[in-house]
Design a protein around this nucleic acid. Structure first.
Length: 417
DNA sequence: TTTTGAGTTGTTCGA
DNA sequence: GTCGAACAACTCAAA
């Protein structure tokens, strides 16, 4: 909400700069938009398509409520309109690589258009200004990134000039600012994927780094196109053989995973970063999702909903695709037995422990070699770091090897039905 | 129609 | 300590 309001404020300033004006109305879109359209005596209502199921339903209802006034939807949420890429036999792509190959071959991405000129409104209508956070009973979170089109463009420019060159190697490092951090801008539409694509495509940076970023944009694209064609994926696993999987109900495990007290430092860091920042590093999301679904055996849809509730950048398409992939039931022909080791992953992608120390400060004084597995640290070192396991920081709620074996057995049994 | 090549992100075990 | 194989065989997409 904070990000949305700040983005609206930015839009209001930009419009004023162009001689326009942002009108704010409250109410259901099916009532408010027709009322405004009639009040302004417009000949059409123009909007950007929202391709996700919720948005499609909303657009359908608004169009119906507008009656004779045309409701014109433009593309822009994705690089190519969803539903336009098809296999040679007319089928829907279900594997990323062929989708990406076909996309690069057939889609030409033009530079974004300049801002339109605006005409002053001649009709006065009854509108409000957008509410302040406090009016909605919310407190400002100072950790959120600046929102709005200008902030997004600055972020893109900064990324292109400094982060892009090392993107292909640093993007996996949880302890570095190696990612673009553009996800919330793409989600809110304050940055178009075309602008990001063109800026990176035409940038002076190593080809591997540029290609890597463009591929990530295509993953976002793949998620939206896939959900467009198969909206039922928000409720069902992509892989039909995962239907009816024996997920566990583990209230204690669920609570620990949500609040960051599983005893696995990287998993806990991810949980706490989510609650604090509305953002989690991509690598940490995968580790957290793997832990919830595989170590704890909890249904991916619960983790998916939790992430969607807390993420600033959370959209249905990418979130669902990511969670299904992590759970092993998504668009991925890779085997189900790929279970992330939370300690190894931490050591590999947070080698100095910076990420863990930031989010799990009670372990901050522990030497790096024990940071990702504090239960294996000698008592003396724990004491020196001021850590008593079970008091300052929990012991692991599950044993990695045991949990892994349990999941593999469950999956093997279920998939062999 | 049949064949062929390939598939984001990993871990463990044993030589 | 390093390295390759096993994990399991399947489905997709294109030729």
């Amino acid at each position: 909400m904070q990000h949305l309001l700040a983005a609206l404020g930015s839009l209001e300033r930009n419009l004023a700069h162009l001689g326009g004006r942002l009108l704010v109305v409250s109410g259901k879109s099916t009532d408010a938009i027709p009322r405004l359209a009639e009040g302004l005596r417009v000949d059409r209502v123009v909007a950007q398509r929202w391709s996700e199921p919720f948005g499609r339903e909303r657009d359908r209802r608004v169009a119906a409520a507008l009656g004779p006034i045309p409701f014109v939807l433009h593309e822009g949420e994705t690089l190519a309109p969803p539903g336009t890429l098809r296999t040679q036999t007319g089928g829907v792509y279900s594997v990323f690589t062929p989708f990406a190959r076909a996309f690069r071959k057939s889609v030409e991405i033009a530079a974004p258009l300049p801002a339109p000129t605006l005409e002053p409104l001649e009709v006065s209508v009854d509108t409000a200004s957008s509410p302040a956070l406090a009016e909605l009973g919310l407190r400002e979170n100072p950790r959120l990134l600046p929102a709005g089109e200008r902030a997004a463009r600055t972020r893109l420019a900064d990324f292109v000039s400094s982060g892009l060159a090392t993107y292909d190697t640093d993007r996996d490092r949880m302890d570095r600012a190696g990612t673009s951090r553009l996800s919330q801008d793409l989600k809110f539409g304050t940055l178009s994927p075309r602008a990001a694509w063109c800026a990176v495509r035409d940038a002076e940076a190593p080809e591997e780094a540029r290609e890597r970023f463009l591929t990530e944009l295509l993953w976002r694209e793949f998620a939206h196109h896939t959900l467009w064609d198969r909206p039922e994926l928000l409720e069902r696993p992509f892989r039909a053989d995962f239907e009816g999987f024996p997920w566990r109900d583990d209230p204690k495990g669920w609570k620990a995973w949500c609040e960051g007290t599983t005893g696995y430092p990287v998993v806990d860091a991810a949980a706490r970063q989510l609650l604090a920042e509305g953002y989690v590093h991509n690598r940490a999301r995968m580790i957290a999702a793997s832990f919830l679904t595989k170590h704890l055996g909890i249904d991916f849809r619960r983790g998916e909903a939790h992430y969607l509730e807390w993420l600033v950048d959370g959209d249905w398409a990418a979130n669902d695709l990511g969670w299904q992939w992590s759970a092993g039931c998504g668009c991925d022909a890779q085997p189900y037995f790929r279970v992330f080791h939370p300690v190894t992953q931490g050591q590999r992608f947070d080698p100095e422990g910076t990420y863990v120390r930031t989010w799990v400060p009670e372990l901050a004084r522990l030497p790096t070699r024990h940071l990702h597995a504090p239960w294996e640290a000698p008592e003396l070192e724990l004491r020196a770091a001021g850590v008593r396991l079970g008091e300052h920081y929990p012991r692991p709620i599950v044993d990695h090897a045991t949990a892994r074996a349990r999941f593999l057995a469950d999956a093997k049994r279920h998939l062999a039905r």
